[in-house]
Amino acid sequence: MVNAIVINDSTANRATVIATRTNSAEMGVMKAMLIDTLKVKLSNGIAHFVFKKKDGSLREAWGTTQRNIANAKTNGRGVSREYFKTTAYFDVECGEWRSFRWENLVQVF
């Protein structure tokens, strides 16, 4: 029996970037799929997740990309965070946009 995982182009791109940054192909695929899970949760409502900040500390966050919540704080004139190999979310606790590097995602609840 063969187990296979089918991923789209965006997930494959994220997996490659994460694998390069972490020196682990397995970590690249795992984190890329975790980001896919998070992006679905962010678009459907408020997601609860944890990521590692630049200073190494862990950040527990509640965020969304759902239009009816985040639109008031969206100007649409910037470059997508995907270009910078990060994921953006609207932080519902502080009312501002934030982002994190893909390889720093730790957990999605």
Rank of each mutant, 00 (worst) to 15 (best):
V17T: 07
I18H: 01
A19M: 06
A19H: 09
T20Q: 15
T22K: 10
N23D: 04
N23M: 04
A25C: 03
A25Q: 10
A25W: 02
E26Y: 14
E26G: 14
M27L: 12
M27F: 12
M27T: 15
M27V: 12
V29F: 01
M30C: 08
K31V: 08
A32M: 12
A32T: 11
M33P: 00
I35W: 08
I35D: 09
D36R: 11
D36Y: 15
T37Q: 12
T37L: 05
L38C: 04
L38E: 02
L38T: 01
L38A: 00
V40R: 09
L42C: 00
S43F: 11
S43M: 13
N44G: 03
N44R: 00
N44L: 05
G45W: 09
I46H: 07
A47E: 11
H48F: 14
F49C: 14
F49Y: 15
F49P: 10
F49H: 12
F49W: 14
F51K: 02
F51W: 15
F51I: 09
K52D: 00
K54V: 13
K54A: 13
G56H: 06
S57N: 12
L58D: 04
R59G: 01
E60H: 11
E60V: 05
E60P: 05
W62G: 07
W62K: 14
G63W: 02
G63Q: 08
T64K: 06
T65P: 04
R67A: 15
R67I: 08
N68V: 02
N68R: 01
I69T: 04
A70T: 02
A70F: 06
N71F: 07
N71I: 08
A72E: 10
A72I: 00
K73A: 10
K73Y: 10
T74Y: 11
T74A: 00
T74V: 01
T74W: 11
N75F: 13
N75Y: 10
N75Q: 09
R77P: 07
V79H: 14
V79W: 15
S80F: 01
R81I: 04
E82C: 04
E82Y: 12
Y83S: 10
Y83I: 01
F84M: 02
F84C: 00
F84E: 05
K85R: 09
K85V: 07
T86Q: 08
T87P: 05
